[in-house]
């Protein structure tokens, strides 16, 4: 496998740009003796859809976990809008405007769509966070609006999430992320476990988001999903970034060879 070409391209891409929305410099992460991230530089421009590809264990999940506050990097810095930021827990990421959509959808099955949209960020009529009186009316109306905005048809926001299909759940997750007006939307393998029809729906959602100018990082090991919707593709292998390319400069076969 040759990595020379893509690496050169990645360096030239880095050199051109100063106006990144998100900039990660020299990230390292160890899990015990496993070096999961090795000196990774990862940048995203505003309004861009970046496809992040790699085989299982390539480090893409670890990178996402660092960005969404699930794990903290052991070394390296993260800059958001030019400002150095510390993301030490999921809430810190959310407060910075980084929303993550997980492949398992991060929903509470027994709870309603409406409650799921506001988990951990419930709207309050009165009182500080943790001692707040719920504002159910406002949550219901805002939930309905958010669901409509992503073009979902779900009968009622009071339906429990367990009654929804996988694709509908991802739709709610996207509505949730959009409701909180994220600066960066991370989609971590959102098409896993979905049928072809549902996958297409989720990809449509991402296209709509990118048309609206939302910055997205789309993670998948399915190159057929990534290639058509990405403005740029970053490939990882064994904890390192091995390519940073425009989709027009590559094709699915080359990408496949690169990451496997």
């Amino acid at each position: 496998m040759s990595t020379t070409g893509p690496t050169e391209q990645s360096q030239s891409a880095n050199a051109q740009s100063g106006d990144y929305l998100l900039r990660c410099v020299g990230l390292h992460k160890w899990y015990g003796s496993v070096h999961a991230l090795r000196n990774v530089d990862f940048n995203v421009r505003a309004g861009e859809v970046v496809g992040l590809v790699g085989d299982n264990g390539a480090g893409k999940s670890t990178l996402i976990k660092v960005l969404s506050g699930v794990h903290k990097q052991d070394k390296g810095d993260i800059f958001l809008e030019g400002r150095k930021v510390v993301i030490d827990r999921p809430r810190a990421a959310m407060q910075l405007g980084i929303e993550t959509i997980y492949q398992y959808t991060a929903m509470i099955p027994e709870m309603s769509i409406l409650r799921n949209i506001f988990i951990g960020r419930e709207l309050r009529k009165a009182g500080p966070r943790g001692f707040g009186w719920l504002d159910r009316k406002r949550m219901a109306s805002e939930a309905v609006a958010s669901i409509a905005e992503v073009g979902l048809d779900l009968e009622s926001p009071h339906r429990p999430v367990k009654e929804l299909s996988g694709g509908q759940r991802q739709g709610v997750a996207i509505a949730r992320a959009m409701h909180f007006q994220s600066k960066i939307l991370i989609l971590d393998e959102p098409t896993n476990h979905l049928s072809v029809k549902e996958t297409n729906k989720v990809l449509d959602h991402v296209r709509t988001l990118s048309e609206q100018g939302v910055t997205c990082i789309f993670i998948s090991h399915n190159l057929h999903h990534i290639h058509p919707i990405s403005d740029r593709i970053v490939a990882m292998a064994r904890g390192e970034k091995i390519a940073d390319i425009h989709p027009d400069d590559t094709n699915i076969d080359d990408l496949n060879k690169m990451i496997s």
């Binding site: 969404s68 993550t100 959808t105 991060a106 929903m107 509470i108 027994e110 988990i119 951990g120 719920l134």
Partner: peptide
């Protein structure tokens, strides 16, 4: 609401900042 969320799916509750 957090109590129900935590018991309903601890991982999701944690990922959503609870």
């Amino acid at each position: 609401s957090w109590i129900f969320a935590t018991g309903g799916n601890t991982q999701a509750a944690r990922d959503m900042g609870i």
